[in-house]
């Protein structure tokens, strides 16, 4: 369960996750982990030292019984190394000094397990197995002073829960980083600006338009109008699942800015649900040219541009119309 990482990052995990001295104090206070517990734990340290090996052996026997955890210890050498690290990890629990270094160490261990893909449930399951085993041994050791055994066990429970909280935080931290990166990637996903013909642009917008992307869309559209001298642009929002008042207002502003530049924006693909929702929240789209679908949007644009839309077969006739 424990393997130290040598990875040297410039920023400590504590900083990254935002665990300050005060936060450590808060966590300890919430768990009611105090001086008494530390004394209690230091008191059983020699006993813990003695039961370390057999507990570890049982521990890995248990892990190897399950497919889900077995896969992490296929290699015999790896297994031996992990066992040694694990022993250190357990030993550290009863050594006191639950300070910054301790926290950073626990976070690193959590991060390593997250990285190799050990599921949180396995992590928690392992703590559970460990605690039950240690409980049995403690009560066995202090047969004549069950009170003491209970006190020591409860103190151990606090430290273990402190550790569990930290481990879970490393998992959450990684997920958050991942989500951040994905959002970043989403942002960079540009809306293509298609130049379908002289002076006509189409922007098929797909996906959620959160404010950053909406802003980007505006910039892109206005820039493209400037560089291509487009007279009309169709913004097709068929692929946008939700349009709230903020996005709607953003679209309105875009339409307005395009008009100032001298171009007309046609909004297509507004579903009836979205249209109703917008009316309900009081967004006024009356100043905006909207059409049901892309096809009618195109027809509208061609009209604006002074083209005549003719079915493909009628080319000859259209040539006659426009000599």
């Amino acid at each position: 369960m424990a393997e130290q990482t040598n990875q040297d990052s410039t920023k400590s995990l504590m900083e990254e996750i935002g665990i300050t001295d005060r936060e450590i104090a808060n966590r300890c206070a919430f768990l009611e982990l105090g001086e008494k517990d530390i004394k209690e734990l230091l008191g059983i340290d020699p006993v813990a030292e003695a039961y370390a090996d057999p507990v570890i052996e049982d521990f890995y026997k248990h892990l190897l019984n399950f497919e889900e955890t077995r896969v992490f210890f296929q290699d015999r050498q790896v297994l031996e190394r992990v066992k040694r690290a694990q022993k250190q990890y357990f030993a550290r629990l009863t050594r006191g000094n639950y300070d910054k270094d301790y926290i950073e160490d626990r976070l690193k261990i959590g991060a390593v397990h997250e990285r190799i893909g050990l599921p949180v449930k396995a992590y928690l399951g392992m703590y559970n197995f460990y605690l039950r085993n240690v409980a049995a041994r403690l009560f066995d050791e202090y047969k004549n002073d069950r009170e003491k055994a209970l006190r020591a066990f409860l103190s151990l429970l606090k430290v273990v829960f402190l550790d569990m909280g930290l481990a879970i935080d490393t998992y959450i931290n990684r997920r958050e980083q991942l989500i951040g990166k994905q959002q970043e990637a989403m942002r960079e996903l540009p809306t293509p600006v298609l130049r379908v013909r002289e002076r006509l642009l189409i922007l098929p917008v797909v996906g959620v338009l959160e404010s950053y992307r909406a802003h980007q869309l505006t910039e892109q559209l206005l820039e493209s109008i400037g560089t291509t001298r487009a007279k009309a642009a169709i913004v097709d929002i068929t692929g946008v699942p939700v349009v709230d008042s903020r996005v709607a207002n953003h679209l309105l502003q875009t339409v307005s800015a395009a008009r100032l530049m001298g171009a007309t924006v046609i909004l297509t693909g507004l579903s009836s649900q979205i249209a109703q929702a917008l009316v309900a929240i009081g967004v006024d789209l009356s100043q905006v040219k909207t059409t049901v679908d892309l096809q009618s949007g195109l027809e509208e644009a061609e009209r604006l541009l002074g083209y005549r839309l003719v079915p493909a077969g009628d080319k000859a006739r259209s040539d006659q119309l426009h000599p």
Partner: peptide, 21 residues
């Protein structure tokens, strides 16, 4: 009026000037 550039059009809209024109 000719030649309102993209970023200027955007700023005008933010200011609320678009409706005045």
């Amino acid at each position: 009026i000719v030649g309102i550039r993209p970023e200027i059009a955007f700023a005008m809209v933010q200011l609320g000037l678009d409706t005045r024109l």
